[in-house]
Design a protein around this nucleic acid. Structure first.
Length: 273
DNA sequence: AGGTCGACCTGGCAGC
DNA sequence: TGCTGCCAGGTCGACC
């Protein structure tokens, strides 16, 4: 469910709470969440290890251990981490894994639809998802020139491309629509036909919107909650996503909903060309 | 190779 | 009330 700003919010909060703590117990309530090995192997690999860093790549959280190893958490659409500092909260029907840490706090992984996945690896290169993932939009590598060069090679609609994790990391369905609204570019435009000025606007909007959303702790359209089950605040800034038939906040034209590559897209036909 | 579609799952909601 | 169908913020493999 979460996109870059939501995952980054979770990452920061998690890093503040768990770095330096050791995993003292793991309860796997549904082993379908663990994808690359058995629940037993997963527990054996993680138990007794100390968390040294919590980083993020695209929409995935990377927990690094000492002795060396990594737990990769990809919440996908419905995965949700809940941190309980005093270790007394009960699990709910969506709880799939409970990690107990050395200070008796607990980290629950909840997932309604079981789309999310948790993996343990000794080398990040073993995560297929990381092998082909595109640049991080909030890092220096993401420049107007890079964007221009790479958009030229793509003929598909710009909206689908923004959501393609091989192309660029971390942007999902909500932010793709919002970025294009701010750029005043129609989601149907072919990537390779964007003009230099439009690419510059697209780059600016991508960076600005993601940064704003991170500073507001993400968007809670429906399910997303942070580590302490609190909603994000970027919903108030949403201009088009989920607003089909409602008036465009700039020009009052009803917002249009279309389907691209199987996903809903929202845009203003008048403001976005 | 690039782009699109269905599958993976469950629950909430609108409509009947 | 209860049924059906549709929708949901992601990713992957199969297919054209």
């Amino acid at each position: 469910m979460p996109e870059l700003p939501e995952v980054e919010t979770i990452r920061r909060d998690l890093a503040e709470q768990v770095i330096g703590l050791t995993i003292s117990a793991i309860q796997v309530l549904d082993d379908r969440v663990i994808r690359n090995c058995s629940a037993r192997q997963f527990c054996r690999q993680c138990l007794g290890k100390t968390i040294t860093t919590v980083t993020r790549r695209g929409k995935a959280i990377v927990i690094q251990f000492s002795p060396p190893g990594y737990a990769i958490i990809q919440p996908m659409m419905t995965g949700h981490l809940v941190y309980d500092p005093v270790g007394e909260k009960v699990t709910d029907r969506d709880t799939k894994i409970v990690f107990t840490l050395s200070n008796q706090s607990r980290l629950n992984y909840n997932d309604q639809r079981l789309f999310g996945r948790i993996q343990y690896v000794d080398d990040l290169k073993k995560i297929e998802f990381f092998r082909h993932i595109g640049p991080e939009p909030l890092e220096k590598e993401f420049t107007v020139d890079w964007l221009k060069l790479n958009l030229e090679k793509r003929s598909g609609p710009i909206k689908s491309l923004l959501m393609n994790q091989h192309f660029i990391a971390g942007i999902g369905n909500i932010y793709a629509s919002e970025i294009l609204f701010r750029s005043r570019i129609s989601p149907r435009r072919s990537a390779r036909r964007l003009k230099r000025e439009e690419i510059a606007l697209l780059h600016r909007a991508t960076v600005d919107i993601l940064k704003e959303a991170v500073s507001l702790r993400g968007t809670s359209m429906r399910n997303y909650r942070d580590l302490s089950s609190t909603k994000g605040n970027f919903m108030n800034r949403i201009k088009v996503y989920g607003r089909e038939q409602e008036k465009c906040l700039q020009c009052k034209t009803p917002i249009t909903k279309i389907v691209q590559a199987g996903r809903s897209t929202f845009y203003c036909k008048r403001c976005q060309r």
